[in-house]
Every structure is written in C-alpha cells, then in structure tokens.
Design a protein around this nucleic acid. Structure first.
Length: 467
RNA sequence: GGCACCGUGGCGGAGUGGUUACGCAAUGGUCUGCAAAACCAUGUACACCGGUUCAAUUCCGGUCGGUGCCUCCA
C-alpha cells in the first residue's frame, strides 16, 4: 500500500511496525458547536483509510480524540476557551456543551456510516495522564512557567517544525500576532493554563503548578501514546493542523520519549463550499441537518467525497450533491440487480473479480477513491446492458459486500422486493402481453408509489428503487 | 508581505509525455404500447506565452487568475 507521507512529502510504501497490525490516531473535533460538512469530510476520508487498511488484511487499532476542554479561540494560547465560550453563548456549563455536541457529532458519524474507532476518547477523561506527561517534560527541562501557564520551550527541540517545513527564524521576524511577552519563543505553546486569579471555571483541575486546565496539544500526545504506544504507525488530521498542532504534538511527544512519534503523517485538504472556504462568518458551514431537511441522505455527502481525492481541495456545491445523489442511486440500482440475475446474462464472475482487483489497487494507491469509483461505474453500466448471469450470483453478492466494506454506501442493505411487489410485476407483464396497457400503467403506478421503478428489457422486466 | 497548492469540456472531478477517465446534466437516436425508465451516440477539454522533446494537457520557465496557510477551523 502506498500513502503520501507529509513527513517526507513523498508517496511511500506503507508497512506497520507490527506485521498485520496498524496503529492509527486521528485528530477529532473540538465539541463546542455543531460539526459542519467540512469537519465531517475529514472523518469520511480517514474512514476510507481504515476501510482500505482492513481490506488489505490489517487489523487497525484506531483512536480518535474528542477535545472537550482547553482548545482556545487562538492557537497562540490567547483568548477564551472554546468550550467556555460555547457555554456562555448557550447558558449552559462547559460540561453540558461538550456532552451535547459530542453526542451530535457521533450521530453524524453514524449517519455518514463512518466506522466507530476502536477508542473514542475524551480529553477530560485523561487529565491525570496529561499532568504526568507535563511533569516528565518538566523533569527533562523542556518547560518553563510564566504568569498564565506552563509552556513548552520549542527552542529545545532541534527539529521543531520540520513536519510543516516551518522556517522558525522567519516566523519570529515576521510575527504579527500579539502573544504573551513572557514567552521565550513565538512558537512556544502552553502545556497547562492557569485559572486566572479570582475566577472559577466550569472545567478546572488541581495540578503541581496550580489550578487550571491542559493546553490543547498535550491531550493528543497523551491519548495517542496511552492507547497505541510511543510510536504510531499513522497519524491523520486536517491540513490546518499541520503548522501548529501537529508540530507541537511531535515536539512534546518526542521530547518526552526520545522516540519518533508517528511514522506516517497523513493530511486531508479542506472541503470548500461553492468555491469558498467554510467559515462561521461566511455562514456557509452547512450541517447534515440542513441537507436532511432538503431530502438528502448523509450517504449522498459520502458519495460526493468519494468522488474527489482526499488531498485535493474539493468543492461542495448543491449541484454536486444532487449529482452525487443520482450516482449513488444508480449504483444502488446496480447492486439491486443481484436479486435479478438472468439465465442468459452475459456478465460473469470474472467481471466482478477483475473490477474488485482494480478498485482495491486504486484504493491502495494513496486512497484513489475517484479512480476506484470510475472502475465501478464502468462495470455498473455494463451490467445494465448485459445483465448478470445467474451463475455469477454468488460473485455478485460478494462484490456488493466488498463495495460496502470499502465505500460504506450501504448498497447491500437493500432487500429484495416483496412477494407482493413481485406479484405486481408479474401481473403487469401479463397485462402488457394482453395489450391491456391501461391496467399495466396502473400497476406501474402502484409500484412507483412503493418507490419501485420498472423497466422493460429484452430479457424481461427489471426493477430499481427510486429512493 | 512570506510559504504552498491549483487553473481540465455546462457542473463536479481523476489521470497521463503519444490511446475514451468517471459521474451528473444536455442534445440526438434505439428499444418500447407509451415513457419520466434503460441503452447507444455526441461535445475537436486540459488558463495564456515561451522552452525541452519526434511528440506536452502531462516536464521546465514566465504571465495572468484562483484558493489555502501564516490568524479559529477538518
């Protein structure tokens, strides 16, 4: 399997440290608001990675974090805590806000048919471990304390910023952002933030340095290493995490262990909406709820994402979503043909095997979902023309199961039509043979009302679901 | 201002030094009792200007345009 490793900026052959077992960490959301389709796009991308790894024979131990504390409005460790801000906005406690949006996020993942990670872990459940890691860093001399918290001294990390190819000197010269003047280096980041004197936060804990809460970056290092070991096979995240969050994760993790933190770093690009980036102020952060109200299935969004490569800046448009929906329904009609194999069908088991192999090859080539889909569409189209022979029924069923494993479009979920519906089709054929077209059309309308479209082919009547 | 990336037919979106990506839509046709279905066919796509090459959309340089990051975000 080939994956593009941000660490080397090259397509590399991937093999895990332990044969057959992959350790994977994915940066999850900060749960202070609803997740929009752009946020979700990342998890669909990484879901495809997990599915492809599993299909390639690897067991995948997958950890995703939920940031429910400590992520400040600015990565420069300034401003309010996002959770605290959300709490103020909604008149709830930060704990309530976190719980509410975490649950909503998990429901969204389910709707998108994103596999459940082996471990979904919350930062607030790992406060003791975070304090322990900060202590280790302190003992090794990587930290210093200023008025608002405990900071990591990035100048002590010789390769600081390498992943992002950060030019640290240039950054310092061109720094425009105001930061705490007590910081030794502009890139230094908070490991622990103090609760300001005289204040009481919803979320705060005692620590050796004083009451407060953990910095945003430390949680990922802690939870990744706790569940997956000191060196991960793969660490994934959105491209926005590259220049700050990920280089900080590397700095603190490697400072603590002296070992490489992650062997492969994968970054997905952002989804645009109508050609612009998604931002709260632009009001284009479309939610799954919004799309559901317009009659779209979350799987239509999944389809749309599969059509583009995870490293490109894909564009979400309503026209694109409609096209994706049509394409998904067309693939569903193809999958439903497995209930309708015919004696004289020309598509044999080999057709499915060949397409299966091409698709897997494309996926293993840095998750080439667009090319894998193209191969599938080509087969689906020929199936409409040549129909599938009954001798290939088993191969067809296996193929649909494969599609669901890698694409997660739930094509295999649809059942055969009912005996009653089959009866209607037979009756309609009889009526047609008797040239009683009025009756035939009535029966067709009846089927249509049950979301079944019929079409007449030289080899007989074929049905497809219209929803 | 600094650093990247990108510019593909109506839309979305792959890929490649010389052969149809693919999907959606559109147009024409076939089949059909009819058809909203299905199938077949069609669009002289690869921003512009140079260069390298027998050959460039695909490599190199420049121009123009767009986007992202540097500042919250997946």
């Amino acid at each position: 399997m080939q994956l593009f490793n941000t660490l080397t900026r090259k397509l590399e052959h991937f093999t895990p440290q332990t044969p057959g077992e992959v350790t994977l960490y994915t940066c999850g959301p900060t749960v202070y608001d609803y997740q929009h389709i752009g946020n979700y796009s990342a998890y669909v991308r990484w879901d495809t990675l997990v599915r492809t790894l599993r299909e390639s024979g690897y067991a995948v131990d997958w950890v995703m974090n939920i940031t429910d504390v400590g992520h400040l409005v600015s990565d420069a460790d300034e401003g309010e805590d996002k959770l605290q801000k959300g709490a103020k906005r909604e008149g709830k406690t930060a704990w309530d806000v976190a719980k509410f949006y975490m649950d909503d996020f998990l429901l969204g993942l389910k709707a998108l048919n994103v596999l459940t990670p082996t471990h979904v872990v919350r930062a607030t459940d790992h406060i003791a471990e975070q304090i322990a890691l900060i202590k280790t860093l302190e003992q090794k001399g990587y930290t210093y304390i200023i008025d608002d918290g405990v900071y990591f001294d990035t100048s002590k990390s010789p390769d600081y910023g390498y992943l992002a190819r950060l030019d640290v000197k240039n950054l310092q010269a061109g720094a425009r952002v105001e930061f705490n003047k007590q910081k030794r280096n502009v890139t230094d980041f908070a490991l622990w933030k103090f609760t300001p004197a005289g204040q009481k936060r919803d979320m705060e804990w005692d620590s050796p340095w004083g009451k407060g809460f953990p910095g945003w970056h430390i949680e990922c290092s802690v939870m990744a290493m706790k569940y997956l070991g000191e060196t991960l096979d793969i660490h994934t995240g959105g491209i926005d995490h590259l220049p700050v969050h990920h280089i900080n994760e590397i700095a603190q993790s490697e400072a603590a262990t002296g070992k490489q933190f992650a062997r492969f770093w994968l970054h997905c690009n952002h989804l645009m909406v109508e050609g612009s980036k998604i931002s709260k102020s632009a009001g284009n952060g479309i939610l799954l709820h919004n799309l559901a109200e317009q009659g779209f299935n979350a799987l239509d969004v999944r389809m749309l994402l599969l059509q583009s490569h995870y490293r490109t800046q894909a564009n979400f448009t309503m026209d694109g979503l409609r096209a994706a929906r049509q394409r998904r329904l067309s693939l569903q009609a193809f999958a439903d043909l497995r209930f309708q194999t015919v004696e004289a069908g020309e598509l044999n088991a080999q057709s499915f095997t060949e397409t299966h192999n091409v698709m897997l090859e494309e996926l293993q080539n840095d998750l080439g979902t667009p090319d894998a889909l193209a191969a599938l569409s080509t087969l689906a189209e020929s199936a409409q023309t040549y129909l599938v022979g009954s001798d290939a029924a088993r191969a067809f069923a296996d193929f649909v199961a494969f599609l669901d494993r890698v694409f997660g479009l739930k094509l295999g979920d649809s059942k055969d039509i009912t005996v009653g519906q089959k009866q209607l089709i037979t009756e309609r054929e009889t009526a047609r043979a008797a040239k009683d077209f009025a009756k035939a059309d009535t029966l067709r309308a009846e089927l249509e009302a049950q979301k079944i479209t019929v079409r007449d082919t030289p080899l007989g009547t074929i049905w497809a679901r219209s929803d």
